[in-house]
Design a protein around this nucleic acid. Sequence first.
DNA 1: CAGTGGTCTAGACCACTAC
DNA 2: TAGTGGTCTAGACCACTGA
Lengths: 231, 231
Amino acid sequence: MATYSEIQDWLRAGIREGRWRAGDRLPSEAELCAQFQVSRMTVNRALRELQQLGLVRREQGRGSFVAELTRVAARLELRDLHASASERGHHHASEVLALRRESASAEVAHALGLRAGAPVFFCRLLHREQGEPLQIESRWVLPAAAPDFLAQDFRARTPTAYLLDVAPLTAAQFQIEAVAADAEQAGLLGINPGAPCLLVQRLTHGAMGPVSWARLLHPGGRYVLQGSFQP
Amino acid sequence: MATYSEIQDWLRAGIREGRWRAGDRLPSEAELCAQFQVSRMTVNRALRELQQLGLVRREQGRGSFVAELTRVAARLELRDLHASASERGHHHASEVLALRRESASAEVAHALGLRAGAPVFFCRLLHREQGEPLQIESRWVLPAAAPDFLAQDFRARTPTAYLLDVAPLTAAQFQIEAVAADAEQAGLLGINPGAPCLLVQRLTHGAMGPVSWARLLHPGGRYVLQGSFQP
DNA sequence: CAGTGGTCTAGACCACTAC
DNA sequence: TAGTGGTCTAGACCACTGA
């Protein structure tokens, strides 16, 4: 007798220890049923989930095989700064530099799917972790998606956390690039003008469509994105 | 009668169309069984897989709920440059700047889990896409993992593709940051010294342990990492 | 207590693969 | 043809939740 997760553990251990190498055939469902004294449904679930994780490749009529990794992939998470600082036991503070209604520039209008000049809410915050400037957040919000946006106190709750509440996410896109800080940004972040920064641009969608477009600028030396892939 | 994926499609459609909002309770397994005239195992699988995808949250004794997204996450893939250029129909070329045996510096030894001074293979390549410099690849390889590394022609096949062949990946870690180009890097990439670059550092493991450590430097304006999240 | 999900069984029929 | 995985059934027992 065994459970599906025990069978998974046994297979993972065998793969990790090199008992089966990438591309090798694993025992068939029937063999695992006999070995672990379980029904086929149980074995099937164990193998199917390993397949969903990318660790195993299954082929009808042929068998189950250890998957070959052809790309380095990982789940990258871009999280609320306040929550991630708290998890590390760090202190996080936000300074509100701007909070107002604006007319959408061509760039903002394009990102949010509006016509240029349409009214949007805008905020600009400087985030500090342990007292050190870590991010300039520039954010444009569709008024229809968060009508009370301008009345919030973003020192108490970040725009990210507020928007998650009022307009739950259904989809998001981001892009990450390296840019040079301009003079104003450099002053806020306490770095030299032209210094390298990591720019994360993020568009979030709610059930009704686009909600918010954010440009998050981080000083190069102080902010690193990390990820890992462990099958 | 229905299949598990038809039930999933029906639930996803309801969530997408706002029939259930984030946090709402979905029909119970028993209700779905009755509605679709299927056994509980089928409904269970449909819901369990939606849970694994992060679209649904399930609680024993309470029910199944539409998940609230609390983080923007996406599968980020760091791929072989040649393969990704080919997919876009672009031309990719590599220039081999160095290919030799070295003694591991403290930094390299630490990354690969060696003692400082241990022999490692090293290569340095300049990758161009459509003729424009796109990446400086500096890579250190554990000789035991790829004994013939120094005999390869990396203009024909990138080190990434070669290593995937001889030492299949089992795990990887990466980190991404913004740095300034030094004079030599700037010369190779055709940018100004001090210009912002995206630096991706990547450590790959095979079945036997660490295989290779790579530092991939991209000119800021020409290289953007993108990702999206669609439940 | 009734209702929920978590897991497992011992079958079944099917499509596909390889010989 | 024998063996493989893909899917489904009609039950079962359990742990947990909330009234």
